[in-house]
Amino acid sequence: MLRIEKLVKQYPTGDRALRGVDLMVPEGEVVALIGPSGAGKSTLIRCVNRLVEPTSGKIWLRDTEITALSARRLRQVRRRIGMIFQEYALVERLTVMENVLSGRLGYVNFWQSWFRRFPQHDVDQAFALLERVGLSDFVDKRADELSGGQRQRVGIARALIQSPDMLLVDEPTASLDPKTSRQIMRLITELARERGLAVIINIHDVPLAQLFVKRIVGLRAGEIVYDGPPEGLTPERLTDIYGEEDWGAGQAVAGADSAQEMDPEPSPIFAASTSNA
C-alpha cells in the first residue's frame, strides 16, 4: 500500500530531520511510530502527503509515486490520505458539519464549497459518520463549543469522509486526558479495521501504543532503529530509541514520557508490558 524508499529531509536551517528512511505499510495494517521529540516523526508523516516537501527519496501509494506528482495531481492523491492532528486542527468558527464536510473539498468544485452546497451523498455520509463517532446532536454546533475529545472525533470524521486508503495520525492523544486518549485510540483502530485502512500513528505514549497497535516502528534522529511487535520493545530497545541520557530503569521511561507531554497519569500498562518482556 504505502512504500517509502530512502526518504531524506533536510530543512533550510541545515537540520537533517530524516536520514534515509525505508518503510512499507501493507493494506489494513496499523503502525505506531514512536521516538523522542525531534526524531522526525512529524516530518515523516507530513512527507507522505507532502505537507513537507522531501529533499530526496521516493514515496509510493499503491502504484502512484507521490514524490513525482504535479501540484494538481498531488491534490487528487491527498484526497485518498486522511490526516488526524494533535490539536485537532478544526476550524473553530465553522460548525461541526462544515468541518466534517471540509474533508470533501478535494472532490467538489470551488463554487459548491463556497456556497456550502455539497452533494447529498456527501451530506448523508457526514451524518452517518457523525453518528458513528457519537456526535449526532452536535451537527450545527460551532467547533469551539466542543470538548477536546469531541473535537478529535470531528477530526476523525473529517479524515474518514475523504474515503481514504490510508490515514496519517499525528499525536492524536497528546492533548487529551488518559481516559479520552484510550477511547480515541480505540475508535481510530476500530475504524481502520472496519475499512481496511493502512495507518501510521505518531505517538509519544509508548504504553498506549503497545495496547492498541500490533506493529511499532521506532525512530531516532531521523533513522528507523526498531521495527517489530510491541512485545519486542525491551528496555534495551527503548534505550536505542530514546537514547541513554533520558533512560534509566523502566520507571524513568514513564517519567521521560510524561515530561514530554505532561500526561498526568504515568501509565501502569507500560510497567506490565516491560515486565512481560
Binding site: R116, Q120, V123, F127, A128, L129, D140, R195
Partner: peptide, 18 residues
C-alpha cells in the same frame, strides 16, 4: 463502509445555519 451502505439512510438535508 459496510454500515454506511447497509442501512440506506433516509436522506437528511443540511444547510449552513444562517
Amino acid at each position: 463502509m459496510a454500515e454506511l451502505t447497509a442501512s440506506p439512510v433516509t436522506s437528511r438535508r443540511w444547510r449552513k445555519p444562517p
